[in-house]
Design a binder for these strands. Structure first.
Lengths: 249, 249
DNA sequence: TATAATTGTCTAGAGCAATAGACAAATTTG
DNA sequence: CAAATTTGTCTATTGCTCTAGACAATTATA
């Protein structure tokens, strides 16, 4: 579906372009049924570069855990299918990925009580400067980092929210302590960009990687805003699913 | 919301990373109300690089038409806000972007009658090898390339579909000729990747740019599949909007 | 058990990316 | 008008990217 080629003098090193294309190609069946990649010489010829340049690309992917090289045998794909993350009116982290991974977990990286900035205040329908709780979280599936999120909550309505989250490991559970039995995703805005240095570290990505950015906006049953969050997904590990697959839009 | 920083020895030239960050930052209010960017010296200090490196980045963006430099005065943003493309059960190109651009148009780049491959056949509920019509299209808003798409249709149900599309410039209109008065988006799967060479050419992007990839799946009123398409949006020019904003999910 | 195929390591050189400094040209400010 | 600010151009140097060739180490094959 996609014809490959690389650009010189583009500001992106050839080895990085090749690494990106190999990473992408893996899903589309690059490598035979045993997961074996073409040889370094064959890849070099295909991309029109020196063998050493291909080696640099492969080494980066080995470092990332995407490939595995064996001297004398070849280079092999380490099978890691992309997760499909459903987005809709009832978007939930754990429920959405159930069945796609054995071990799902969320971690609290940091939290702080702050004064609401203009965009946060507008989203939560508070006045600028009102106290809000900021949560920095990240999630893993079977030990692979999947996403990181920055979420804002009304501090007056949800005092000590972070403690409930840490104890239960779940936003949904934490809401229950504040009598929010159910809640809804009112809107999600999706964009994409290159990972910044914090993304690289937290999601264990290599420089030049892409993140899907989802700005989400949750409301309770009465329609009052309760959460505003920016979630960044590793674009190589996750795709976002809107509607379909037995999922109520 | 996003703290900027750049990575050395990443395989991506510093000037390109800086260009990417400036391009992104423009939407988030980099540059004051007059559209004036910080001076080259200030940017160099902020990114921790030499002024010449910043100049290379700026020159690339001037070439792209995103910035405009004036000797003695400064560097200015050529105003180009990011479009917000709604995705939901009634996703339509023109209707979705109405009001965000004066001049919306779709172009047919290519079309061909082919035998359905396995994934296409599955999506359209046909047998593998059944005749399908493949349309290659692209869209512009006020002369800026926004997206390109590859769509598949059942050739037996919609013979000559491409002629109706060319005449009306609209998928919705073309369907009317086959008594499909209304249709729905059953699901959309969103991912992101680096633009390939065809993307660069058609969407007029610079190497290293990111595209949002939306796999869409349309059905008619009775729930029968009528269209399967892959649309690629320039991530710098478009964000995808799921739900919200008076939009029925 | 040779032979071929494939990845791993080393050295050397050409070209692009980034730094550094100096000064010119155009514009704004006092 | 003079000074300060800001972009434009030039030269030189350092370091990273890519190429090129040779050979070692490991595994598969005839």
């Amino acid at each position: 579906m996609t014809e490959t080629s690389i650009e010189r003098r583009s500001g992106v090193a050839l080895w990085r372009q090749i690494a990106d294309q190999i990473r992408q190609g893996i899903g589309a069946g690059l490598g035979d049924e045993t997961g074996r990649l073409p040889t370094e010489v064959a890849l070099a010829e295909r991309f029109g570069v020196n063998r050493h340049t291909v080696r640099t690309a492969i080494q980066a992917l080995v470092q990332e855990g995407v490939l595995r090289s064996e001297q004398g045998r070849g280079t092999f794909v380490v099978r890691q299918p992309r997760l499909s993350y459903p987005i809709g009116s009832r978007t939930r982290f754990s429920a959405g990925l159930e069945g796609q991974a054995r071990d799902l977990r969320g971690k609290l990286l940091d939290h702080a009580y702050e004064d609401a900035s203009a965009p946060v205040a507008e989203a939560l329908e508070l006045v600028v400067g009102a106290p809000v709780l900021r949560l920095e979280t990240m999630s893993e599936a079977d030990g692979r980092p999947i996403s990181r999120a920055r979420s804002y909550f009304d501090a007056q309505r949800f005092p000590g929210f972070e403690r409930h989250f840490v104890r239960t490991g779940s936003i949904t559970m934490a809401y229950r302590h504040f009598n929010v039995g159910d809640y809804f995703r009112r809107s999600t805005t999706i964009s994409a960009r290159h990972a910044d240095s914090a993304d690289l570290e937290i999601l264990k990505l290599s420089p030049g990687a892409i993140v899907l950015v989802a700005l989400g906006f949750n409301v309770d049953q009465s329609g009052r805003p309760i959460q505003f969050s920016e979630t960044r997904f590793s674009a190589d590990r996750v795709e976002l699913q809107v509607g379909g697959a037995g999922f109520t839009v």
